[in-house]
Design a binder for these strands. Structure first.
Ligand code: SF4
Ligand code: SF4
Lengths: 150, 150
DNA sequence: GACAAAGCAGACAAAATAGTCTTAATACTT
DNA sequence: AAGTATTAAGACTATTTTGTCTGCTTTGTC
Protein backbone atom coordinates (compact mmCIF):
# COMPACT_ATOMS: atom_id res chain seq x y z
CA UNK A 1 0.00 0.00 0.00
CA UNK A 2 1.45 3.31 -1.05
CA UNK A 3 -0.24 5.54 1.48
CA UNK A 4 -1.18 4.79 5.06
CA UNK A 5 -4.81 4.67 6.11
CA UNK A 6 -4.31 7.82 8.11
CA UNK A 7 -3.25 9.49 4.91
CA UNK A 8 -6.14 8.16 2.86
CA UNK A 9 -8.61 9.28 5.52
CA UNK A 10 -6.97 12.69 5.58
CA UNK A 11 -7.33 13.01 1.81
CA UNK A 12 -10.95 11.96 1.86
CA UNK A 13 -11.77 14.34 4.69
CA UNK A 14 -9.97 17.22 3.02
CA UNK A 15 -11.81 16.63 -0.22
CA UNK A 16 -15.06 16.46 1.69
CA UNK A 17 -14.32 19.87 3.16
CA UNK A 18 -13.46 21.23 -0.26
CA UNK A 19 -16.77 20.00 -1.60
CA UNK A 20 -18.75 21.38 1.32
CA UNK A 21 -18.36 25.02 0.26
CA UNK A 22 -19.62 26.51 3.48
CA UNK A 23 -19.10 30.26 3.69
CA UNK A 24 -17.03 30.52 6.79
CA UNK A 25 -19.07 27.78 8.44
CA UNK A 26 -17.40 24.88 10.21
CA UNK A 27 -18.27 21.27 9.67
CA UNK A 28 -18.28 18.92 12.62
CA UNK A 29 -15.87 16.04 12.58
CA UNK A 30 -18.74 13.85 13.66
CA UNK A 31 -20.54 14.55 10.42
CA UNK A 32 -17.50 13.98 8.23
CA UNK A 33 -16.70 10.77 10.04
CA UNK A 34 -20.16 9.34 9.67
CA UNK A 35 -20.53 10.34 6.03
CA UNK A 36 -17.13 8.98 5.07
CA UNK A 37 -17.53 5.98 7.35
CA UNK A 38 -14.37 6.67 9.31
CA UNK A 39 -14.00 6.22 13.05
CA UNK A 40 -14.84 9.54 14.67
CA UNK A 41 -12.04 9.55 17.21
CA UNK A 42 -9.49 8.40 14.72
CA UNK A 43 -10.48 11.07 12.25
CA UNK A 44 -10.34 13.63 15.04
CA UNK A 45 -6.70 12.85 15.62
CA UNK A 46 -5.93 12.93 11.95
CA UNK A 47 -7.58 16.30 11.52
CA UNK A 48 -5.65 17.56 14.51
CA UNK A 49 -2.50 16.66 12.63
CA UNK A 50 -3.71 18.63 9.64
CA UNK A 51 -4.53 21.50 11.92
CA UNK A 52 -1.03 21.52 13.38
CA UNK A 53 0.31 21.74 9.84
CA UNK A 54 -2.03 24.65 9.16
CA UNK A 55 -4.02 22.91 6.49
CA UNK A 56 -7.29 23.10 8.36
CA UNK A 57 -8.61 25.34 11.11
CA UNK A 58 -10.93 24.25 13.86
CA UNK A 59 -13.37 25.78 16.26
CA UNK A 60 -14.93 24.37 19.40
CA UNK A 61 -18.36 24.62 20.83
CA UNK A 62 -21.76 24.51 19.15
CA UNK A 63 -21.57 25.28 15.45
CA UNK A 64 -17.87 24.49 15.75
CA UNK A 65 -15.96 22.02 13.63
CA UNK A 66 -13.25 22.18 11.03
CA UNK A 67 -12.70 23.98 7.74
CA UNK A 68 -9.92 24.32 5.23
CA UNK A 69 -7.33 26.85 6.31
CA UNK A 70 -6.74 28.05 2.77
CA UNK A 71 -8.78 28.11 -0.44
CA UNK A 72 -8.98 24.64 -1.92
CA UNK A 73 -7.05 25.90 -4.92
CA UNK A 74 -4.03 26.37 -2.69
CA UNK A 75 -3.93 22.96 -1.08
CA UNK A 76 -2.53 20.08 -3.07
CA UNK A 77 -3.00 16.43 -2.33
CA UNK A 78 0.74 16.38 -1.79
CA UNK A 79 0.30 18.86 1.05
CA UNK A 80 -2.03 16.46 2.80
CA UNK A 81 0.19 13.49 2.14
CA UNK A 82 3.27 15.21 3.45
CA UNK A 83 1.44 16.47 6.51
CA UNK A 84 0.40 12.97 7.49
CA UNK A 85 3.08 10.67 6.18
CA UNK A 86 6.03 12.97 6.70
CA UNK A 87 8.15 14.95 4.32
CA UNK A 88 9.98 12.05 2.76
CA UNK A 89 7.15 9.75 1.78
CA UNK A 90 8.47 9.27 -1.69
CA UNK A 91 12.10 9.18 -0.70
CA UNK A 92 12.10 5.55 0.26
CA UNK A 93 12.66 3.09 -2.46
CA UNK A 94 12.24 -0.37 -3.82
CA UNK A 95 15.38 -2.08 -2.71
CA UNK A 96 15.53 -0.01 0.44
CA UNK A 97 19.27 0.01 0.72
CA UNK A 98 20.63 2.37 3.34
CA UNK A 99 22.61 5.33 2.12
CA UNK A 100 21.43 4.91 -1.44
CA UNK A 101 21.79 7.66 -3.96
CA UNK A 102 22.23 8.35 -7.60
CA UNK A 103 25.97 7.79 -7.37
CA UNK A 104 25.74 4.17 -6.30
CA UNK A 105 22.20 3.20 -7.12
CA UNK A 106 20.75 -0.25 -6.76
CA UNK A 107 19.57 -2.05 -9.92
CA UNK A 108 15.98 -0.87 -9.73
CA UNK A 109 16.88 2.74 -9.41
CA UNK A 110 16.24 3.98 -12.88
CA UNK A 111 12.83 2.49 -13.54
CA UNK A 112 11.56 3.16 -10.09
CA UNK A 113 12.77 6.73 -10.00
CA UNK A 114 10.83 7.45 -13.17
CA UNK A 115 7.58 6.01 -11.85
CA UNK A 116 8.06 7.68 -8.53
CA UNK A 117 8.55 11.04 -10.15
CA UNK A 118 5.39 10.56 -12.15
CA UNK A 119 3.34 9.85 -9.05
CA UNK A 120 4.85 12.76 -7.22
CA UNK A 121 3.96 15.05 -10.09
CA UNK A 122 0.39 13.86 -10.10
CA UNK A 123 -0.01 14.62 -6.42
CA UNK A 124 1.73 17.95 -6.70
CA UNK A 125 -0.47 19.07 -9.57
CA UNK A 126 -3.71 17.94 -8.02
CA UNK A 127 -5.22 20.56 -5.75
CA UNK A 128 -8.29 19.92 -3.67
CA UNK A 129 -10.10 22.31 -5.98
CA UNK A 130 -9.18 20.19 -8.98
CA UNK A 131 -10.37 17.08 -7.24
CA UNK A 132 -13.58 18.74 -6.14
CA UNK A 133 -14.23 20.07 -9.61
CA UNK A 134 -13.74 16.67 -11.18
CA UNK A 135 -15.95 15.12 -8.57
CA UNK A 136 -18.82 17.42 -9.42
CA UNK A 137 -18.29 17.53 -13.15
CA UNK A 138 -17.97 13.82 -13.66
CA UNK A 139 -20.42 12.76 -11.01
CA UNK A 140 -17.69 10.87 -9.22
CA UNK A 141 -18.23 9.58 -5.76
CA UNK A 142 -16.49 10.23 -2.50
CA UNK A 143 -18.62 8.41 0.01
CA UNK A 144 -19.48 4.78 -0.22
CA UNK A 145 -22.29 3.79 -2.49
CA UNK A 146 -25.30 2.98 -0.35
CA UNK A 147 -28.46 2.94 -2.41
CA UNK A 148 -26.91 1.68 -5.59
CA UNK A 149 -25.53 -1.79 -5.70
CA UNK A 150 -22.69 -2.43 -8.09
CA UNK B 1 6.13 2.67 1.70
CA UNK B 2 5.03 0.85 -1.41
CA UNK B 3 6.39 -2.59 -0.60
CA UNK B 4 6.69 -4.30 2.76
CA UNK B 5 10.09 -5.07 4.19
CA UNK B 6 9.49 -8.75 3.66
CA UNK B 7 9.01 -7.98 0.01
CA UNK B 8 12.11 -5.83 -0.26
CA UNK B 9 14.18 -8.49 1.45
CA UNK B 10 12.77 -11.09 -0.89
CA UNK B 11 13.70 -9.00 -3.92
CA UNK B 12 17.21 -8.42 -2.68
CA UNK B 13 17.72 -12.08 -1.85
CA UNK B 14 16.37 -13.18 -5.21
CA UNK B 15 18.65 -10.80 -7.03
CA UNK B 16 21.54 -12.03 -4.96
CA UNK B 17 20.77 -15.55 -6.09
CA UNK B 18 20.54 -14.44 -9.69
CA UNK B 19 23.94 -12.81 -9.43
CA UNK B 20 25.52 -15.82 -7.75
CA UNK B 21 25.51 -17.95 -10.91
CA UNK B 22 26.34 -21.22 -9.19
CA UNK B 23 26.01 -24.23 -11.46
CA UNK B 24 23.50 -26.25 -9.56
CA UNK B 25 25.11 -25.28 -6.26
CA UNK B 26 23.03 -24.05 -3.37
CA UNK B 27 23.77 -20.94 -1.39
CA UNK B 28 23.18 -20.98 2.34
CA UNK B 29 20.63 -18.57 3.73
CA UNK B 30 23.17 -17.69 6.37
CA UNK B 31 25.48 -16.30 3.74
CA UNK B 32 22.80 -14.32 1.95
CA UNK B 33 21.55 -12.91 5.23
CA UNK B 34 24.94 -11.75 6.37
CA UNK B 35 25.92 -10.26 3.01
CA UNK B 36 22.64 -8.44 2.62
CA UNK B 37 22.51 -7.55 6.30
CA UNK B 38 19.14 -9.14 6.88
CA UNK B 39 18.16 -11.11 9.96
CA UNK B 40 18.92 -14.76 9.26
CA UNK B 41 15.76 -16.22 10.77
CA UNK B 42 13.59 -13.61 9.18
CA UNK B 43 15.09 -14.21 5.77
CA UNK B 44 14.68 -17.93 6.26
CA UNK B 45 10.95 -17.51 6.63
CA UNK B 46 10.76 -15.21 3.65
CA UNK B 47 12.65 -17.67 1.47
CA UNK B 48 10.38 -20.42 2.67
CA UNK B 49 7.51 -18.38 1.31
CA UNK B 50 9.27 -18.10 -2.02
CA UNK B 51 9.90 -21.80 -1.95
CA UNK B 52 6.22 -22.55 -1.40
CA UNK B 53 5.46 -20.42 -4.43
CA UNK B 54 8.03 -22.39 -6.42
CA UNK B 55 10.29 -19.45 -7.05
CA UNK B 56 13.26 -20.95 -5.24
CA UNK B 57 14.26 -24.48 -4.36
CA UNK B 58 16.04 -25.48 -1.19
CA UNK B 59 18.15 -28.28 0.10
CA UNK B 60 19.10 -29.21 3.65
CA UNK B 61 22.31 -30.42 5.12
CA UNK B 62 25.92 -29.48 4.45
CA UNK B 63 26.34 -27.79 1.08
CA UNK B 64 22.61 -27.18 1.21
CA UNK B 65 20.91 -23.85 0.80
CA UNK B 66 18.66 -22.21 -1.70
CA UNK B 67 18.74 -21.54 -5.42
CA UNK B 68 16.38 -20.09 -8.00
CA UNK B 69 13.81 -22.61 -9.15
CA UNK B 70 13.85 -21.29 -12.70
CA UNK B 71 16.34 -19.45 -14.87
CA UNK B 72 16.57 -15.82 -13.81
CA UNK B 73 15.19 -14.83 -17.19
CA UNK B 74 11.91 -16.44 -16.23
CA UNK B 75 11.37 -14.77 -12.88
CA UNK B 76 10.13 -11.21 -12.81
CA UNK B 77 10.29 -8.87 -9.88
CA UNK B 78 6.52 -8.94 -10.02
CA UNK B 79 6.65 -12.68 -9.36
CA UNK B 80 8.53 -12.02 -6.15
CA UNK B 81 6.28 -9.17 -5.13
CA UNK B 82 3.14 -11.15 -5.71
CA UNK B 83 4.53 -14.16 -3.86
CA UNK B 84 5.22 -12.10 -0.77
CA UNK B 85 2.64 -9.34 -0.74
CA UNK B 86 -0.22 -11.27 -2.25
CA UNK B 87 -1.82 -11.21 -5.65
CA UNK B 88 -3.52 -7.87 -5.37
CA UNK B 89 -0.72 -5.60 -4.23
CA UNK B 90 -1.49 -2.99 -6.79
CA UNK B 91 -5.23 -3.35 -6.58
CA UNK B 92 -5.63 -1.03 -3.64
CA UNK B 93 -5.86 2.61 -4.36
CA UNK B 94 -5.43 6.14 -3.20
CA UNK B 95 -8.82 6.97 -1.80
CA UNK B 96 -9.34 3.39 -0.69
CA UNK B 97 -13.07 3.36 -1.05
CA UNK B 98 -14.66 -0.04 -0.70
CA UNK B 99 -16.29 -1.46 -3.77
CA UNK B 100 -14.61 1.00 -6.08
CA UNK B 101 -14.44 0.43 -9.79
CA UNK B 102 -14.27 2.18 -13.10
CA UNK B 103 -18.03 2.69 -13.12
CA UNK B 104 -18.15 4.85 -10.04
CA UNK B 105 -14.58 5.92 -9.49
CA UNK B 106 -13.38 8.36 -6.87
CA UNK B 107 -11.80 11.64 -8.00
CA UNK B 108 -8.24 10.38 -7.99
CA UNK B 109 -8.97 7.40 -10.11
CA UNK B 110 -7.71 8.53 -13.47
CA UNK B 111 -4.31 9.91 -12.50
CA UNK B 112 -3.57 7.21 -10.02
CA UNK B 113 -4.59 4.40 -12.34
CA UNK B 114 -2.12 5.65 -14.91
CA UNK B 115 0.78 5.81 -12.48
CA UNK B 116 -0.11 2.48 -11.00
CA UNK B 117 -0.17 0.88 -14.38
CA UNK B 118 3.25 2.29 -15.12
CA UNK B 119 4.73 0.83 -11.96
CA UNK B 120 3.10 -2.50 -12.59
CA UNK B 121 4.57 -2.57 -16.07
CA UNK B 122 8.03 -1.82 -14.76
CA UNK B 123 7.89 -4.73 -12.36
CA UNK B 124 6.39 -7.05 -14.91
CA UNK B 125 9.04 -6.26 -17.46
CA UNK B 126 11.94 -6.52 -15.09
CA UNK B 127 13.24 -10.06 -14.76
CA UNK B 128 15.90 -11.03 -12.29
CA UNK B 129 18.17 -11.54 -15.27
CA UNK B 130 17.63 -7.97 -16.37
CA UNK B 131 18.36 -6.70 -12.92
CA UNK B 132 21.44 -8.85 -12.61
CA UNK B 133 22.68 -7.76 -16.00
CA UNK B 134 22.27 -4.10 -15.17
CA UNK B 135 23.95 -4.64 -11.87
CA UNK B 136 27.04 -6.06 -13.50
CA UNK B 137 27.11 -3.79 -16.51
CA UNK B 138 26.67 -0.56 -14.65
CA UNK B 139 28.61 -1.54 -11.55
CA UNK B 140 25.52 -1.02 -9.47
CA UNK B 141 25.42 -2.20 -5.93
CA UNK B 142 23.21 -4.65 -4.09
CA UNK B 143 24.84 -4.92 -0.71
CA UNK B 144 25.55 -1.98 1.50
CA UNK B 145 28.61 0.05 0.76
CA UNK B 146 31.22 -0.78 3.35
CA UNK B 147 34.67 0.36 2.28
CA UNK B 148 33.54 3.37 0.35
CA UNK B 149 32.03 6.25 2.18
CA UNK B 150 29.56 8.43 0.35
C1' DG C 1 -24.58 30.91 35.30
C1' DA C 2 -26.16 26.22 33.64
C1' DC C 3 -26.13 23.35 30.04
C1' DA C 4 -25.04 21.37 25.69
C1' DA C 5 -22.17 20.94 21.58
C1' DA C 6 -18.37 20.73 19.77
C1' DG C 7 -12.86 19.94 19.47
C1' DC C 8 -8.47 18.58 22.47
C1' DA C 9 -5.46 15.44 24.84
C1' DG C 10 -3.75 11.46 26.23
C1' DA C 11 -4.25 6.73 27.96
C1' DC C 12 -5.53 2.44 26.38
C1' DA C 13 -6.61 -1.73 23.21
C1' DA C 14 -6.40 -4.36 18.96
C1' DA C 15 -4.35 -5.71 14.80
C1' DA C 16 -0.77 -5.97 11.55
C1' DT C 17 3.96 -6.26 10.67
C1' DA C 18 8.63 -7.29 11.81
C1' DG C 19 11.86 -9.90 14.07
C1' DT C 20 13.80 -13.71 17.44
C1' DC C 21 14.40 -18.17 19.25
C1' DT C 22 14.06 -23.03 20.00
C1' DT C 23 13.39 -27.47 18.34
C1' DA C 24 12.94 -30.52 14.77
C1' DA C 25 14.06 -32.78 10.22
C1' DT C 26 17.31 -33.77 6.67
C1' DA C 27 21.55 -34.63 4.35
C1' DC C 28 26.46 -34.81 3.98
C1' DT C 29 31.13 -36.32 6.05
C1' DT C 30 34.05 -39.27 8.37
C1' DA D 1 26.85 -44.72 13.49
C1' DA D 2 28.11 -40.10 15.10
C1' DG D 3 28.56 -35.54 14.30
C1' DT D 4 27.78 -31.41 11.84
C1' DA D 5 25.67 -28.21 8.68
C1' DT D 6 21.94 -26.85 6.87
C1' DT D 7 16.69 -25.76 6.05
C1' DA D 8 11.64 -26.30 8.18
C1' DA D 9 8.24 -25.23 11.42
C1' DG D 10 6.18 -22.87 14.69
C1' DA D 11 6.02 -20.49 19.12
C1' DC D 12 7.25 -16.35 20.95
C1' DT D 13 8.39 -11.19 21.38
C1' DA D 14 8.72 -6.38 19.76
C1' DT D 15 7.32 -2.56 17.09
C1' DT D 16 4.29 0.04 14.36
C1' DT D 17 -0.10 1.15 12.87
C1' DT D 18 -4.79 1.49 13.65
C1' DG D 19 -8.54 2.27 16.37
C1' DT D 20 -11.23 3.21 21.01
C1' DC D 21 -12.40 5.37 25.19
C1' DT D 22 -12.64 8.66 28.87
C1' DG D 23 -12.22 12.99 30.65
C1' DC D 24 -11.09 17.98 29.81
C1' DT D 25 -11.56 22.56 27.53
C1' DT D 26 -13.73 25.88 24.74
C1' DT D 27 -17.78 28.13 22.93
C1' DG D 28 -22.52 29.23 22.09
C1' DT D 29 -27.44 29.36 23.87
C1' DC D 30 -30.93 29.85 27.18
S1 SF4 E 1 19.40 3.02 -5.41
FE1 SF4 E 1 17.56 4.02 -6.27
S2 SF4 E 1 16.01 2.40 -6.44
FE2 SF4 E 1 17.67 1.60 -5.14
S3 SF4 E 1 16.96 2.01 -3.02
FE3 SF4 E 1 18.24 3.77 -3.66
S4 SF4 E 1 16.86 5.33 -4.57
FE4 SF4 E 1 15.76 3.33 -4.42
S1 SF4 F 1 -12.08 4.87 -7.64
FE1 SF4 F 1 -10.05 4.50 -8.61
S2 SF4 F 1 -8.61 5.81 -7.45
FE2 SF4 F 1 -10.49 5.72 -6.24
S3 SF4 F 1 -10.18 4.05 -4.76
FE3 SF4 F 1 -11.21 3.15 -6.57
S4 SF4 F 1 -9.58 2.42 -7.99
FE4 SF4 F 1 -8.64 3.82 -6.45
Amino acid sequence: MLLSKRCIYALRAALYLALAKTDGEYISIQKIASELNISFHFLTKILQDLQRKNLVISFRGPRGGVALARPDTEITSMDIIRAINGEDVFAQCIMGLPGCGTETPCPMHEDWARSRKAIETVFNNTSLATLAEQTVKKHLRLTEPKARTE
